[in-house]
């Protein structure tokens, strides 16, 4: 079994600034959604996370990525 997995990352709203809209990336098997957030510099302190979806399902940061997953990240929106 290959040690690497292919992941599609989709970013929304302010997450696109200085990053990208959609990108294919290769990660090591065992990578979690949290690892990707760390890599992208997304934290509660800076651009807090709202919706995290993998293959159109809501997931938690601990989710372990599988080959072919599509990860979508939306920033937290709370104003009124």
């Amino acid at each position: 079994m290959s040690k690497s997995i292919n992941i599609t990352l989709k970013l929304f709203a302010q997450y696109r600034d200085d990053r990208f809209k959609v990108e294919q990336r290769v990660y090591e098997r065992g990578t979690t959604a949290q690892d990707i957030l760390d890599e992208l510099g997304i934290s509660e302190h800076r651009l807090p996370l709202g919706v995290l979806m993998v293959n159109s399902r809501h997931e938690k940061e601990e989710y372990v990525l599988q080959d072919g997953d599509i990860v979508a990240l939306f920033p937290k929106v709370g104003g009124g």
Binding site: F12, A13, Q14, E44, L47, P48, L49, G50, V51, H58, F74, P75, K76, V77, G78, G79, G80
Partner: peptide, 25 residues
């Protein structure tokens, strides 16, 4: 809302939108 972004849902709880009660962007 935040900037030019918005989100909406009806008759749902909001755990999928907010992991915690802190402010958004």
């Amino acid at each position: 809302i935040a900037g030019l972004n918005g989100q909406f849902t009806t008759c749902s709880t909001l755990e999928n939108l907010y992991r915690d009660g802190s402010s958004g962007i």
